[in-house]
Nucleic acid binder design. Structure first.
Lengths: 341, 341
DNA sequence: TAAATCAATGCACACGTTTGCTCAAAATTT
DNA sequence: AAATTTTGAGCAAACGTGTGCATTGATTTA
């Protein structure tokens, strides 16, 4: 009992023109007299006619559809990023099909289907899809954009926030405050961003260490996000001679760390321990945490993706883009406590 | 320089069969000899052939695409809900196209495009799209599902959490603790859920009020979410004889309320004021808040949507579904302080 | 005024599937 | 062995649109 779709033929008949003319009325470039166009559009509206994009795509071999794969919306920064991505794409007239990558098996199936929809491009945010899957897309000439994610794929376009600069700023901030016993907190299921930050952090310290001596403890916990930070605090702060300056791979981890430090271990922040995060989530600015952190701007990341998608047609070059970060000073870093005489 | 798509004709040629046969090999129902099917599929795999869903949809007039409109991912509960929706739909072999409804104008355009993609159904989560838009879809026989949202549209399918029960439980909890001066906190840009909870809260109190006397203050603030709660606390707690039992329309509002109450107004929770929220966000269980709240289960909501989408083919009846809620007792409700002798 | 240019529109094929109908061969029944 | 049913597979039309080419009438140029 489905109502028959109203098609271009219908409006053509009513307008007394050919289907071609109707078709051209809905594209900007074609030369159609203003008077005809106006009449046709009017009749189309009246009939409730809508272009069938599926048919159009088939004919033009182009599509407004974009695949957007994210490993669930559990990580708060991922949420903000996806949100920005969606609205940015929408403004460009592109339509994202979302894919959940939490379940690797499901993902494998679904990602294939994405190709079946002839998506214009596929953007993979930090998460777990195996690189072999991305390769499949490249085989079919569907451009792949890796966002804040490892770049195993040679042919993919890469967009990353400046983890190196961020890690450097974090190191600098802790050292400037006088800390010498530092630690890096992360989940052992960490994403590319996490290990990248750790490596650059370590690297920066190695440079500084020549001046004074600075120790670095690398802590990985078999949890993710908030829970990882929580567990990490329990573990490390119970030790006799624990570190005093903590760089958490993400703000979310920092929240867990702070909560456990305060409520379970009775530590004061920043009096007893200093903490710095990465992301600058909205929650970080709230009085509960007031977290000093490295800000990466989702807007700029989204903008870069947009430019990348548009640019892909024109250039065959793979794009490599680094998005700047900055230090946001709040209230979780202070001088280390006066400990041993 | 686009690589030519490999089509069913290509695999047909190589397999020495007709296109029809290839087509039927990828559908379950048709009668094709096992040996042919196996050979065809093998060749298809080898060629990297993928069904072109656009073409298929055009032929079958069916689509795996589903429109999912949400007013941005700012509200934390919305995020969880959307997340569950995406993974649930994915499991069903459906592909959600996400639409951001924050910007009403953009939305109007984008939602039209959704129809152009011949979506199987469109689900609108709590948010702002005008009801007239929904009506457009119904005109085109695209089923509309309203999720936690007002049901102005007669022909739409409705799925809501049990706001009535929730409000009742909240009222009961506060009254049982001994509170008589109650308040309801909400954003003045509130969604349907918010006003619904308020109305049921008031209604429940009216019943109780016959027994003892209970006052209700309704507070609306010109902010949203966390900020609304924050401002509300500043405003109401500065008054001489303020309420002691607060029902916040959402957990997120409750967080703002608690933060302001504690850090700006110097109140202790639950010693000075009691708070109850709605949603049961993960954050509510953390020690920072440990918020007593009404839990609504995103899983069940998503499941209901799934069933609804599936059921729509078979029955022409509009679906009305209420999803149960429950009270989660934590640490933000206690007896009111001993105030006036 | 004849020739050349141009603007507006129609024709018909292409895009990649699905599916009702047809048909031949094989299998089964009488 | 003849008649019937079943099985496997091909033909061709349909889905709704875009677009190169052809056509026609109007306008400009020589």
């Amino acid at each position: 009992m489905k109502k028959q779709n109203v098609t271009s033929a219908d409006v053509a008949r009513l307008a007394g023109v050919s289907r071609s003319t109707v078709s051209r009325c809905f594209k900007s470039d074609s030369r159609i007299s203003d008077v005809t166009r106006k009449r046709v559009i009017e009749i189309a509206d009246q009939l409730g006619y809508q272009v069938n994009k599926l048919a159009r795509s088939m004919s033009t071999k182009e599509s407004d559809l974009v695949g957007l794969v994210s490993s669930g919306l559990h990580d708060p920064f991922a949420v903000i990023l996806v949100d920005k991505l969606i609205s940015t794409l929408q403004k460009m007239g592109l339509h994202p099909i979302l894919l959940d990558a939490s379940n690797e098996k499901q993902l494998d199936i679904s990602i294939k289907k994405l190709a079946q929809y002839q998506v214009k491009s596929i953007v993979i945010t930090s998460g777990s899809p195996s690189s072999s899957i991305g390769a499949k897309f490249i085989n079919r000439d569907i451009p792949v954009i890796l966002l804040n994610r490892a770049g195993q794929l040679d042919q993919a376009n890469l967009i990353n926030c400046d983890n190196q600069k961020g890690a450097m700023l974090a190191a600098q901030a802790l050292i400037d405050a006088g800390h010498t016993k530092l630690a890096f907190i992360n989940s052992s299921f960490s994403t590319f961003s996490g290990v990248s930050r750790r490596d650059f952090f370590e690297q920066t310290l190695a440079l500084k260490a020549s001046a004074g001596d600075v120790t670095l403890e690398k802590i990985n916990v078999e949890e993710t996000g908030y829970q990882a930070g929580y567990k990490a605090a329990l573990k490390t702060l119970s030790q006799q001679d624990h570190a005093t300056g903590f760089f958490c791979a993400t703000d979310n981890i920092a929240f867990g760390f702070m909560d456990a430090a305060r409520y379970e271990m009775g530590k004061k922040i920043p009096d007893d321990v200093s903490v710095i995060g990465f992301d600058d989530l909205p929650l970080s600015a709230r009085p509960t945490y007031d977290l000093t952190t490295i800000k990466q701007c989702p807007n700029n990341l989204a903008k870069a993706v947009a430019e990348c998608i548009n640019g892909i047609d024109t250039t065959s070059e793979r794009i490599r883009k680094i998005i700047p970060v900055s230090l946001i000073k709040r209230k979780t870093i202070a001088a280390p406590p006066y400990q041993q005489l």
